[in-house]
Computed example of a mutant assay.
Amino acid sequence: MRLLLDENLPKRLKQDFPEHEVFTVRDKEWNGTKNGELLKLMVVDGFHALLTFDKNLQHQQNFDKYTLTVFILNAPINTYAELTKLSHQIKALLAAGGLQPGPVIVKDE
């Protein structure tokens, strides 16, 4: 699957998903792109999911317009040490297949 890490996530998080094609917003040179436009670019470029720390995104976008899953990572802070704790849940969801468009909250259980 093609995954995009939002610019509010550490790029090191890419290494947690070696079985997927993972890019950062910086890799794609989409820095500073507004969320709605970013989602459109992702669809055109064949991405399947966005990983973000932006908890407001789920309230700001109409996900009926997009075929993307948006994993909203819910952790105390957006450091690699905290976010990597959520990677196993994301991997399990990706492995299960059948991702639904729209937001999926991922938090430490």
Rank of each mutant, 00 (worst) to 15 (best):
K11L: 03
L99F: 10
L86Q: 09
V25K: 01
K28M: 15
H88V: 12
N78T: 08
V106K: 11
I90V: 15
S87Q: 09
S87G: 08
P103R: 14
D6I: 04
P103T: 15
E29G: 01
R2K: 15
R26H: 12
L9V: 08
K14E: 13
K55I: 07
A49D: 01
G46V: 14
P103G: 11
T84N: 10
K11I: 00
E82P: 01
S87Y: 11
P18K: 10
K55Q: 12
D54Y: 04
K107C: 05
N31F: 07
I90F: 02
H88A: 14
E109H: 15
Q58N: 01
T33I: 15
W30C: 00
H59I: 07
F17S: 03
K14W: 05
N35D: 15
L99Q: 11
R12I: 00
L68D: 04
L9A: 07
K85V: 03
I77S: 08
K107G: 02
N56G: 03
Q61F: 02
V104M: 12
L50K: 05
T52P: 07
H48D: 08
V22L: 05
H88S: 15
K91S: 12
S87C: 14
P76G: 05
T33Q: 09
L9S: 07
Q60A: 08
Y80A: 00
N8I: 05
Q60S: 09
E7G: 04
L3A: 04
V70P: 03
Q89D: 12
A75T: 03
N31P: 00
T79C: 01
K107L: 06
F17V: 05
H20P: 00
K65Q: 13
E109Y: 15
L57C: 02
D6S: 09
K55L: 10
L3V: 10
L51D: 03
G97Y: 13
T67C: 07
A96H: 09
Y80K: 05
L41H: 13
N35A: 12
I77N: 11
F23S: 11
K34S: 06
G102Y: 13
